[in-house]
Design a protein around this nucleic acid. Sequence first.
DNA 1: TTCGACACATACGT
DNA 2: GACGTATGTGTCGA
Length: 299
Amino acid sequence: MLAQANEADLLEATSRKVAPRSSDLFKVGPQFSETRHHQDIYCKSNDMDVNPILGARIDRGFEMGETGTWIGYKRNYFTLVSSFTFENFDFERFLHNKFYTYEKLSRSSVGENKVEISYFAIRLVAKCSDDDVSISLIQHTPKRDKGPQFPPPIYPAVPGNLPDHSTVRASCNKRNNGKIENMNKIFYFDRAEYYHNANLNALKDNSVLKNYPSDSIARVARFERIQFSSSIRIKSTSVNSRYFTLHVELLGIIEDEDSQIQPILLSSIETPPLIVRGRSPSNYHKDRTSGYRPHGPGH
DNA sequence: TTCGACACATACGT
DNA sequence: GACGTATGTGTCGA
């Protein structure tokens, strides 16, 4: 059974051409690390320390290679979802509170500055795993080449639960309004609807909720049709591939003295090192049946 | 060798 | 089941 699985993986990874719309393209990728904390979060009402827990899953675009490393393709899309919760905070409790953190002051000065968090947000970044240098990611529309490209959005977000892999799979490429609406209930929180049902409005609300920039607020940040920027260098030497990591960051958005919006990195999670295969034909129609890596002159 | 552009093919959603 | 889409990947030429 193990041998069988390996054989299947090998076939998958080395020979067969993949149909462009096959649902097999959805695969769960590598696990993310435990949440790492960068700046503490406190609850305003009682100054209690709040423990954020970030979760994320790659749902498309990476598969495990023969040697156990995770492999993606520069030319192909990947999909990633992420959400966060606060330990011991159910959703209602979150909605009735405000939070603050400390802003690191410049190196020359000492100490930290207490700042209120206007709202929370989730960001996706990629880094080169050697030097921690940021790598740009881009997002396509369904029109791909015919549409514009953007950097992946930073999602203003409230706490939420990560949907199943199958839910993410089912959420892609929907045009039917009813289906889209059902998916939106999973991926978004509707503030206007909440205010209506709770007999509240933005004037009466004095919680963190009122500071979010729009009524449609992510419960789950969904990053679809993401690719590594076409300009990334894949090799560190002519032989060795570089490794990349994907990081999901929980940000606290604050307002500085000049009412400028500014993100503070509160916590993050990351993938293990990833290989991104480039466009070289040697990364495609391989037919070797051993673990041998081709790099000599081919055909 | 690598990249942008265009092309072809094929499973999916409606 | 037909039709339009979305997307992996083949290819050309700078």
